[in-house]
């Protein structure tokens, strides 16, 4: 670091680049955890639906824990637990693991709701037309149930995107952490926080509006 006269320096254009990079990191960690978490969550949701009481005694309580403990505690706990069992994970990997499980625990309920939203008579009709169990899941349950819970899933995904800000507690420089660093240097909290907030808003608002309009369209 070069010696400077003043400890603080103003907000410079290159700081925008710094924020932009951090925003990309926020997107990257969110997209990664949401996509893996959704796949896992759908599988868990199917297990919850088909497993009946066996799943209710095993999978459900475990998923419930991830919904009942603050994400920030989960992150710190996992980040400090991994070395104990000999895993050396960087903040990004730890963040992805926990965000993925967290997403999966939320999506599991959504997915189960989706399967339950398909009328049993419809599924029996599909089976009696000669479809196999998996064909029934793929061609009947997925389109109908998926449509029923798509808005709920969008809500979960956006929630995880916003919660990814918490990975900053492990030292991963995503958008909010980056703005915190800039605030410390430039002493211009209002401007920088507004920029960071505007980014989240610009990402989340159109998607939630789109999901809401889809919901209205499908409800008709």
């Amino acid at each position: 670091m070069e010696p400077t006269v003043s400890f603080f320096s103003g907000f410079a254009p290159k700081d925008l680049l710094f924020l932009g990079e951090a925003a990309l990191r926020t997107m990257w960690i969110s997209v990664l955890s949401i996509s893996i978490g959704t796949v896992l969550g759908v599988i868990f949701g199917w297990i919850l639906y088909e497993g009946k009481w066996a799943a209710a005694l095993t999978v459900a309580p475990i998923l419930d824990v991830f919904r009942s403990v603050p994400l920030i505690i989960q992150l710190v706990l996992f980040y400090n637990f991994a070395p104990i069992v000999g895993l050396n994970l960087d903040p990004f990997a730890s963040g992805v693991v926990i965000l993925t499980i967290y997403t999966a625990s939320l999506v599991a309920n959504v997915a189960r709701g989706g399967i339950e939203a398909v009328q049993p008579s419809m599924r029996r009709a599909a089976r009696s037309l000669g479809m196999s169990y998996w064909q029934d899941l793929r061609h009947v349950v997925l389109p109908i149930g998926g449509r029923a819970v798509f808005p709920a899933w969008v809500g979960v995904a956006l929630g995880v995107m916003k919660d990814s800000a918490l990975v900053s507690v492990l030292g991963y420089v995503e958008l909010l952490k980056a703005s915190q660093i800039l605030i410390t240097r430039t002493q211009e909290p209002f401007l920088i926080l507004t920029l960071a907030g505007a980014f989240y808003f610009a990402l989340s608002y159109p998607i939630s509006r789109y999901a809401a309009s889809l919901e209205r369209k499908w409800a008709q």
Partner: peptide, 8 residues
């Protein structure tokens, strides 16, 4: 309130 992180 709904479209920005609580931490923000």
């Amino acid at each position: 309130a709904r479209n920005t992180p609580a931490l923000f």
